[in-house]
């Protein structure tokens, strides 16, 4: 074509690109996802009742039979673990949401629009962040009921929730990658559970790592879930028997958790975006 000029007619969709457009479009998508939650009461119930159930089950079923190395209440120990597990499991919803958008042709529609390319994924991660915040609120309230307390003041408590939300945000990118990669909702469901269970249970989330076999302990000790749970325990002032002389994640759990989350985002987000751009292509 020899006669293409750069000037576009005024009513053509905007040419604006870059981070501002990405954030704007991402928020629009997030808003849409949250509307879905409001319109499907099951999703809302799942997001709120399930965490409460976990707290009650673990607190009352395991609560009495687990001895804490170094003393302290198991329930006070447990809550940070459940916080971490729930934000990690939320990534399954991100994965499912994206898989459903793919299978229903919504992704095609979005990809054919002159919108920011990664906005669908960013929007998913953002709405997941909101859902995580809601779940954490419900969890914290039910934790207070069973006897858990944040002992270190408002600032450190908020910092702990910040660490959790950042970890949840990172995990939602793994969920996004899983969803966009596997595509079919049934497959995605099975796949996310396959990695989420070992990830959350091979950690100090529910029991201290001290009791694990020696070959398993390093895995649990370096697991980002352990670092995140330990970071919360440190910031909440809860029993934190993770400590072992010279073990970096035990001595610097907050830093370790943040580093893990940043690393996961740095790897999973670009892969998910790349995959999205080529989806079904």
């Amino acid at each position: 074509m020899s006669t293409v000029t750069a000037t576009a007619p005024p009513f053509l969709p905007g040419t604006e690109t870059g981070p501002r457009r990405l954030v704007r479009d991402g928020l629009l998508v997030a808003q849409r996802n949250l509307r879905h939650v409001l319109r499907v009461p099951e999703l809302l119930i799942q997001a709120t009742i399930q965490p409460v159930m976990f707290v009650l089950l673990f607190a009352f079923v395991f609560g009495g039979s687990i001895d804490m190395p170094g003393g302290g209440s198991y329930r006070a120990y447990l809550l940070a673990g459940i916080f971490t597990q729930i934000v990690a499991f939320g990534s399954a919803n991100t994965a499912m949401g994206i898989a459903e958008d793919l299978s229903k042709g919504v992704v095609d529609r979005f990809r054919s629009l002159p919108m920011a390319r990664s906005a669908l994924l960013l929007g998913r991660a953002a709405s997941h962040l909101v859902m995580n915040a809601l779940a954490l609120l419900v969890l914290a309230l039910s934790g207070l009921v069973v006897g858990w307390r944040a002992e270190e003041g408002v600032a450190r408590t908020l910092a702990a929730f910040g660490v959790l939300l950042f970890f949840g945000f990172a995990m939602s990118w793994v969920g996004a990658l899983t969803g966009i990669w596997l595509g079919r909702p049934e497959v995605v469901q099975a796949a996310t559970m396959t990695w989420l269970f070992p990830l959350t249970f091979l950690s100090n989330a529910f029991v201290p790592t001290q009791g694990m076999p020696s070959w398993l302990r390093p895995v649990a000790e370096w697991n980002p879930v352990s670092a995140t749970a330990a970071a919360c325990r440190e910031l909440f002032g809860n029993p934190n028997p993770f400590a072992r002389e010279g073990l970096f994640p035990a001595e610097h759990p907050v830093l370790t958790s943040l580093a893990w989350s940043a690393l996961v985002i740095a790897i999973a987000a670009p892969l998910a975006v790349r995959r999205y751009r080529r989806a079904a292509g």
């Binding site: 905007g14 629009l28 998508v29 849409r32 509307r35 042709g105 529609r109 919108m115």
Partner: peptide, 21 residues
């Protein structure tokens, strides 16, 4: 039809328009 079943007809269109800028 790639319509969003959980959004209203109007919300579907407004979303597309806004995403288009």
């Amino acid at each position: 039809a790639a319509v969003d079943e959980l959004l209203t007809g109007e919300e579907n269109l407004v979303l597309i328009g806004r995403l288009a800028g």
